[in-house]
């Protein structure tokens, strides 16, 4: 079973601001990228136990420690087990550069960037004392992209193109030599 915790800043997110400027002003994504949001996603892998008990135990742990989020600056959402799919790795082969004209539809893509070997072993061991059955714990940056594309395939290609750094002028959000980007969800979106 998997429980996931999404943590967002309550204040201005300067990393998001800088990424937005780099993507839209330096890399030419202004017409394609409609919006960009950033969060941290924690993924708790649990080997046994019923969801309600584990959620309660995790909620207590979040209350007790600021290792996962700090209520003074962040808000959090504890997602239901299986709310987010495993996702699939973004592949450089699929990557598209922004086309001259943006597509007609809006797509929302959730891209999760984790460091290679990014299992948070020390934290897992400490948390496991209070969260029985915890077998894995990973954290990474969750980017929510709103993209203008005609088809889902194109949207997926744009997400890969924007996220995976391949060359000096191509891609920004992760360096594939030590990070992994997973496309968790891709769905048609509403205009804001």
């Amino acid at each position: 079973m998997r429980l996931e915790l999404r943590v967002e800043l309550k204040t201005v997110d300067l990393v998001r601001e800088t990424a937005w400027l780099a993507l839209t002003e330096k890399l030419g994504w202004a017409a394609v990228l409609a919006d960009l949001r950033r969060a941290v996603l924690w993924r708790f892998e649990l080997s046994d136990g019923d969801e309600a008990t584990l959620r309660a135990a995790l909620a207590a742990e979040l209350e007790r420690t600021s290792a996962f989020y700090n209520p003074n600056k962040e808000r959090h959402h504890l997602l239901a087990g299986g709310a987010l799919p495993e996702g699939e790795p973004l592949a450089a082969a699929d990557a598209l550069e922004p086309p001259p004209a943006p597509g007609a539809r809006l797509w929302r893509a959730l891209v999760w960037v984790t460091d290679e070997g990014g299992e948070q072993a020390a934290l897992r061991r400490r948390t496991a004392r209070r969260l029985p059955g915890l077998s894995g714990l990973r954290a990474g940056t969750l980017w929510e992209l709103a993209l203008r594309a005609d088809t889902a395939t194109m949207a997926r290609g744009l997400a890969a193109g924007l996220a995976l750094t391949r060359r000096r002028r191509q891609g920004l959000l992760l360096n594939p030599h030590y990070q992994e980007g997973r496309l968790l969800t891709l769905a048609p979106g509403e205009e804001a």
């Binding site: 300067l14 990393v15 800088t18 990424a19 780099a22 330096k26 750094t165 920004l172």
Partner: peptide, 18 residues
């Protein structure tokens, strides 16, 4: 540079001067 936002060096690498 750019306070290592996104990733150390990643944003400065996109500057025109490069």
């Amino acid at each position: 540079s750019y306070q290592d936002r996104v990733r150390a060096g990643a944003v400065a690498a996109k500057e025109d001067i490069l």
